[in-house]
Design a protein around this nucleic acid. Structure first.
Length: 624
RNA sequence: GGGGGCGUAGCUCAAUUGGUUAGAGUACCGGACUGUCGAUCCGGUGGUUGCGGGUUCGAGUCCCGUCGCCCUCGCCA
């Protein structure tokens, strides 16, 4: 071992090391210079240790005064107790300090484009700047903690799957483009000019084929790529825990995966998840929450008031009902003071919000001084008002919000409004808003339970999880004027609905399920079709004639006839899980090197133009 | 492709109704200071207000265009 190499990490030294000569390697977080000594906070991913350089050795002391932020040092010295009254209770190494005998600058560092320190009132630099210098951003403590959490999540997953008898297997990245689903990232073939590989949107077909090959319990932490527009919780490349099992029915998959979810919450945050998870049909989810990924940390469910609206004199409601639409509403309890009439009227904040979702408008009433108020109040006779009050459990101070439209629009608009108001009115708590002081007992407890120490107060009510079941098999795509698969074309229909496949495709339910956590879809899967004739029938429904299906998925259709066992599976969004466990709402925070919203890597600049020679080899010509 | 927000010192932000030489904190540089821990105190360097055009006696501020970033709708089986 070279003499500069560390004997300990910067998070390791305790009173048990007193008197020992040790060497630390790390980065200078900050220095504090005095006439007779220099204090250096030396930091690595394990923690922070105070180094003291005294003025006894003049050359050493002079050098210490030249140290700057983010210098990389090797410090050899003696561990000593801090002088009485100068201990720090807030960091694990706070009882001791390192009295430097030798300091080596392994690398100097000029002033950086932004600060790596993270003091409580310090705002982080703009995200695009941080992405440009991602290697510096990743040096920040909070991001290091998140990426260490991500490692733990992967470890917990691997342990759980292994314990349950699953094999971790890899599948190709270079595959074949499939017409259904997301836009593919394509890779031109040099050997076969004019032909392209596609990067996988998911390992879907490969894992089904592994089932057919007899590897009855498979999993993979699989990278998936989809060339679609990004969101706060979507990256073009992301990681899924991909799972597939043979000889199972839906409940086997659900039971297995909720056990994993409980493990993750327990081991990462110390929270106990009550099992089994609640289950909700897709139909109920849409009716009550207007969403297939309801956030059930709070109530404020959608209420159908079609019957009451029908008895009113309000023409807008009556016309919509007569045209086969619905009238549904929310009761925002105690929000009357929060929303002015101009927020509510056409063009106001809330009204504008719902028009985003194609709703024609937002009707409203308030309950003030025991009376319903608002511009539509006059269309409701007293008896009808009484019914409305009863139905929506109206009390003083409530705001009633209504959307009258065709059912899908009403669901979308009210569902989005419900989650918008949930956060606006603070109807649920985020655990990261309840940050606690560092607690030495928490460190001990965490060590005993073999989990990461958690500086937050996390309670079970911060995590609400459920399954959404019984999705429809198909949705009619108005643009393409054909049926498309809601999950994917390999999802099995419910046994009792198979007969309706051709006669009434809209009514066919799929053996599909989504795992929902705090309003995020954190997993989704299905029991697959394992019979060739059913698969061919579904392809046909999707407007794919047999010849087409043969050309595109012939290998699958053949495989299904070669002893395919009943099978099914699921995929969990690893990045979204990490995001929720880390207490952030931005998926980029849990990915070491993410892309920006336009899918550009601001650090490397990718994507970038390539040499004409490379294009020529690939047989690719650019359009002028 | 549509809607919304943002862009001022290396960084985070301010700048009244369009009006003096665009300020503050921090970083950085220099000085003072015997145990700090985001040390403190004093002083200093640092600006094409994203870019281009326009209106005006006068533009960080108003108008048009453009670029970039974020959120969102569409999209994401």
């Amino acid at each position: 071992m070279a003499d500069w190499q560390r004997t300990h990490t910067c998070g390791e030294l305790r009173e048990t090391h007193l008197g020992q000569t040790v060497t630390l390697n790390g980065w200078v977080l900050i220095t504090r210079n005095f006439p007779n000594q220099v204090f250096v906070d030396l930091r690595d991913r394990y923690g922070l240790t105070q180094v003291v350089i005294e003025d006894g050795d003049k050359a050493l002391f002079a050098e210490a005064n030249q140290l700057g932020r983010e210098y990389v040092l090797s410090v050899t010295g003696v561990v000593r107790k801090r002088i009485a009254g100068k201990e720090r209770a807030d960091i694990p190494t706070g009882q001791v300090e390192l009295e430097a005998k030798a300091v080596r600058v392994l690398n100097a560092c000029p002033p950086l484009p932004f600060s790596v320190t993270e003091f409580p009132d310090e705002e982080p630099a703009n995200e695009d700047l941080r992405l440009q210098y991602r290697y510096l951003d990743l040096r920040r403590r909070s991001i290091q903690q998140v990426l260490m959490l991500r490692h733990r999540v992967c470890k917990i997953i691997r342990d759980y799957m292994d314990t349950n008898g699953f094999l971790e297997m890899e599948t190709p990245l270079l595959g074949k483009s499939t017409p259904e689903g997301a836009r593919d990232y394509l890779v031109p073939s040099r050997v076969f000019n004019g032909e392209f590989f596609a990067l996988p949107q998911s390992p879907q077909l490969y894992k089904q084929l592994l089932m057919i090959s007899g590897y009855d319990k498979y999993f993979q932490l699989a990278r998936c790529l989809r060339d679609e527009d990004l969101r706060a919780d979507r990256q073009p490349e992301f990681t899924q825990l991909d799972v597939e099992m043979s000889f199972v029915e839906r409940d086997d998959v659900l039971t297995l995966m909720e056990g994993l979810a409980a493990d993750l919450l327990k081991q990462c945050l110390g929270v106990t998840l009550a099992l089994p998870l609640p289950r909700l049909s897709y139909q109920d989810a849409m009716l009550r929450y207007g969403s297939d990924k309801p956030d059930n940390r709070f109530g404020m469910e959608i209420i159908d008031i079609g019957d009451v609206a029908g008895e009113s004199e309000f023409k807008v409601f009556k016309d919509v009902l007569a045209a086969g639409g619905v009238v549904r509403g929310l009761n925002a309890k105690n929000a009357a003071a929060k929303f002015s009439n101009s927020d509510l009227k056409p063009g106001g904040k809330l009204s504008a919000f719902v028009t985003q979702f194609k709703a024609k408008g937002l009707a409203w009433m308030k309950c003030e001084a025991g009376k319903l108020t608002g511009s539509i109040e006059k269309f409701f006779p007293d008896a009808v008002k009484a019914k409305l009050i009863e139905k929506m459990q109206v009390e003083n101070g409530d705001v009633l919000l209504f959307v009258a439209d065709k059912e899908s629009v009403a669901c979308d608009a009210l569902g989005a409004l419900r989650s918008h108001l949930g956060s606006e009115l603070k109807l649920y708590k985020n655990w990261w808003d309840e940050k606690a002081e560092y607690d030495a007992t928490e460190e001990k407890a965490a060590k005993k339970e073999k989990r990461a120490p958690n500086p937050f107060v996390v309670k079970p009510e911060h995590f609400k999880m459920l399954w959404v079941l019984d999705f429809p098999m198909f949705a009619f795509d108005d643009e393409e004027r054909r049926w498309v698969a809601i999950h994917h074309p390999f999802t099995a229909p419910m046994d009792e609905d198979v007969a309706n496949l051709e006669s009434n495709p809209g009514a066919v339910r799929a053996k599909a399920y989504d795992m929902v956590l705090n309003g995020y879809e954190v997993g989704g899967g299905s029991i697959r079709i394992h019979r060739q004739d059913v698969q061919a029938q579904v392809f046909k429904m999707l407007g794919m004639p047999l010849e087409d299906a043969q050309a595109r998925f012939g290998f699958l259709l053949d495989a299904l006839q070669s002893g395919a066992p009943p099978h099914g599976g699921i995929a969990l969004g690893l990045d979204r899980w990490c995001m929720i466990l880390a207490g952030t709402t931005n998926i980029r925070d849990v990915i070491a090197f993410p892309k920006n919203q336009k899918a550009r890597d601001l650090m490397t600049g990718a994507p970038a133009v390539v040499e004409p020679r490379q294009l020529k080899e690939l047989g690719v010509e650019l359009k002028k």
